[in-house]
Computed example of a mutant assay.
Amino acid sequence: MAFTRRKTLTQWLPLIALAAACGAGGVQAQDPYPSKPIRVIVPYPAGGGTDTIARLIGVQLSQRWGQPVVVENKPGASGMLGNDIVAKAPGDGYTVLMGITAVVQIPALYKKVPYKLGDLAPVSQIAKSADLLMVPRSTGVTTLQQFVDKAKAAPGTLNYGSYGNATSSHMNGERFKQKAGIDIAHIPYQGSGPEVAALLGGQLTLAFVDATAAYPHIKSDKVNILAVTGSQRHPALPQVPTMTESGYPGLEANGWFGMFVPAATPKAIVDKLGAEVAAIVKSPELHKRLTDMGLIAVGSQPDEFKPVVEKDAAHWKAVAEAAKISMD
């Protein structure tokens, strides 16, 4: 009797194992990623560069994958609100962050951040930006060294503008002051638009202007462009040297736009999303759109973007600490 029961169980074991395998495979087959709409969280208001890029990529991603991609603007707390939504979302690939450099700067600027940088997994660096160092042509200054010499000759009389307190332009400006050993006043503006207007109006003697905002003015006869931050010359301005080439290293970090997902997202999903986004960015259509915005298209894979995030986080932390820049 016992032998019969053992024999019966032995006969059933292969069938049980097969059923389990088919069941597990069936779930995967019925629910491949993506199988439902994807949310792209933009932590800034509609109409800005981050929002524009998110919508351009969203349209292409929807067409390629046959799933709706919904862009949701969640502005607030300097971007922390939208970042936090993604950081705390389920790790299933259906909630994506379209972030900017502020993602890695915020932890260095605020004491109370509701999430950790490690709560977000890098997916793809979409594009790089840079700050252009611009002066009114009326100053007669044509090189960065000329500006430094002028500032040293009259300490405290010159100024520089940024597109906001604790922004990349502010931190780059303070870094430049330290490297050059000059005393110039910082004048923050509420965005690049007012900053550029002040520069063109002669209220500023120097301005760190985001390349996207400066792009319409790079051929203006009212300004001279002395240098560019970042690790390479800007493609639209091959004649303009970098800060490092001008003799002032330490401003090699580029601004950027990048996609992130919750850190708990399986690597297979992160890699699949990253590969698709990278392909979209490198397509002729989107590459041209980004270039026309004054950006340098990248389209990196997750494993390529991750070290950039880590390196830039350390860089901006060091800059903020050295310049004592804080938003608390």
Rank of each mutant, 00 (worst) to 15 (best):
D328A: 09
K74G: 02
K112P: 04
P75S: 06
G82K: 06
I100T: 13
V27N: 08
L226A: 04
Q239R: 05
A127D: 02
D31V: 09
S78R: 14
G161V: 00
V42E: 03
E72Y: 06
L251S: 02
I184F: 02
V141A: 10
Q145R: 14
W256T: 03
M171Y: 00
F305H: 10
Q203Y: 12
S162G: 13
G258K: 10
G299Y: 04
A268I: 10
Q190T: 10
P238W: 08
Y94D: 02
G66E: 08
V277N: 02
G93V: 12
A318L: 07
D51Y: 08
G118A: 14
S124N: 14
S326L: 00
E304G: 04
A318W: 10
V141K: 07
D271G: 09
L97S: 00
D312T: 11
E245Q: 12
R39Q: 13
L144S: 03
V270Y: 12
L109W: 01
L9E: 06
T167S: 15
S169V: 00
F176L: 04
Q301L: 11
G202D: 07
R137P: 07
Y163T: 06
R39N: 05
F305T: 05
A253H: 12
I182S: 02
R6E: 15
V277L: 14
G118W: 01
K88F: 01
G140M: 10
A29L: 15
K324W: 03
Q178G: 13
Q239H: 05
G49E: 04
A278H: 09
Y215N: 15
I218D: 04
T50S: 11
G173W: 00
I187Q: 08
A166L: 08
G173L: 00
W65Q: 10
V71Y: 03
T244Y: 09
P122D: 02
M80I: 07
E285K: 08
S62E: 10
P34L: 09
E310G: 03
P34C: 09
Q28H: 14
E195M: 06
L286Q: 10
Y110W: 11
L56H: 09
P14E: 01
A21L: 13
L9D: 03
I106P: 03
V104W: 05
A322N: 05
Q301K: 12
S62V: 04
R233V: 11
D221F: 08
A275G: 10
E245G: 04
A314H: 09
R233M: 07
L290C: 04
K272D: 12
K222P: 14
Q239C: 01
K179Y: 02
P235L: 00
E310R: 13
P284W: 07
L56V: 09
A77D: 14
P216D: 02
Q11V: 13
A227K: 15
I269G: 01
I106K: 06
K317G: 14
K7M: 15
W12N: 05
I57T: 15
P114Y: 01
A275M: 11
L144H: 08
M134K: 06
V135T: 10
A278L: 12
S168F: 04
P107V: 09
G66T: 11
L286Y: 10
V71M: 03
I85E: 12
A185Y: 02
G230L: 14
A17I: 15
I182A: 05
L61W: 15
A323G: 04
A275H: 13
A19C: 15
V27M: 11
V281N: 06
G25N: 12
G76Q: 05
I182T: 00
P32G: 02
A211Q: 08
K179E: 14
